[in-house]
Each structure stands twice: as structure tokens, then as C-alpha cells.
Simulated scan of single mutants.
Amino acid sequence: MKLTHSLLAALLATALTTPALSEESPTLYKRLGGYDALAAVTDDFLGRLLPDPKLGRFFVGHSSDSLNRIRGEIIDFLCVVSKGPCSYSGRDMKKAHGGLKITDEDWDISVKALSTTLDKFKVPAVERKEVLTAVSGLKGDIVGR
């Protein structure tokens, strides 16, 4: 589940590194559709990763309750980094992925799943680019840990 946490957490982390929007510009959180949209993206993405033959190993041993808690943390993280009204208390990406030995292949499969999710929800090009840029920026904190 930690792999999922990081990739979805990365979805909107770009909001922290991109130039500030003017006061009148909507936040990335609002441009993406708010909390319900983040929850829908999270659910779809998790739905792609959990049954994946290669990535499923990261989810072994999680109870339904544990998966629901992690889902909530992912949504809260996405909300915070996109300048929404939530708080996040989870671990940073390096700590969350320590010992998992995530490979470049795992990474590529996850990014492809994320891209498919973004396609499904017809995320506009500007926001899609922000999301994928954020994901690529976290690779060093995730792969090989």
C-alpha cells in the first residue's frame, strides 16, 4: 500500500513547486474538482494497483480497515498539496517506501496506471502535466528504497 500512497501523494505535489497562482486563480484542488474528485481518482488508481500481478505484493497483509485508512491518508495528502482544506499526518515518501525495494519496472507500471486513471477522468492537459511532473519528481524518494 505504501507504493500507492506515494504515487497518489505525488499526484498533486506539484502544487508545492509550481509558481504561485494569483489571488483570483483557482487552486489546483478546485481545478481538479475538489475532495470528491480526489477520492474518485484515488479509488480508481487503487483499483488498478491492488489486482496488478506485479504490484499486488505491496498490498499483501492489509485488512479492509487498513486499506480504508490508507485511502483516507492519500486523499488528505492530495487535498493538502493541492491547496485544499485538509490536513495530512502521514509519513514522507522516503520513510514510507523504506525497505520495499520498489524497482524501475514497478514505478513504470504505477505511472501507467496513474495515466490511465487521469485519462478516465479526462483531467485537462495543464493539470495532467502538473500531476505527472509531480510524480516524476518523487521517483528518487520511492524507487530502490
Rank of each mutant, 00 (worst) to 15 (best):
L78V: 14
G47M: 03
K120H: 15
G140H: 12
K54A: 09
P124I: 10
M1G: 05
I109H: 04
R128F: 02
V123E: 03
H62N: 11
D141C: 03
I142M: 06
A13Q: 15
V131R: 04
D141R: 15
F59A: 00
F58K: 14
F77Y: 09
W107L: 01
A13L: 07
D92E: 06
V131P: 00
W107E: 00
C86S: 06
D92G: 12
L32D: 03
T17M: 09
R91W: 03
V60W: 10
V111T: 10
V41C: 08
K83L: 02
T42M: 01
A37I: 06
I109Y: 02
R91P: 07
C79R: 08
L138E: 04
Y35R: 15
R31T: 07
V60Y: 13
K139N: 07
P85N: 05
D108C: 00
L46G: 00
H97G: 12
P85A: 02
F77E: 00
L38H: 07
K30D: 12
D43V: 02
K54Q: 09
D104M: 11
L16E: 13
K122R: 12
G137L: 03
G144P: 11
D76V: 03
V111W: 05
P124E: 13
E105N: 11
E73Y: 10
K139E: 10
S66K: 14
K54I: 13
R91T: 08
S136K: 15
S115G: 12
E73N: 09
M1E: 11
S115T: 15
L50H: 01
S22K: 15
H62T: 09
L55F: 01
S22M: 01
L32Y: 06
L78S: 14
S25K: 13
T14A: 09
L78T: 15
K95C: 00
E127I: 14
K94V: 12
F58D: 04
Y88N: 00
S110H: 05
G90Y: 03
V126G: 11
S82P: 11
L11N: 05
E24D: 07
V41H: 11
R91F: 00
P53R: 02
Y29W: 15
R128A: 07
K120I: 10
T103N: 07
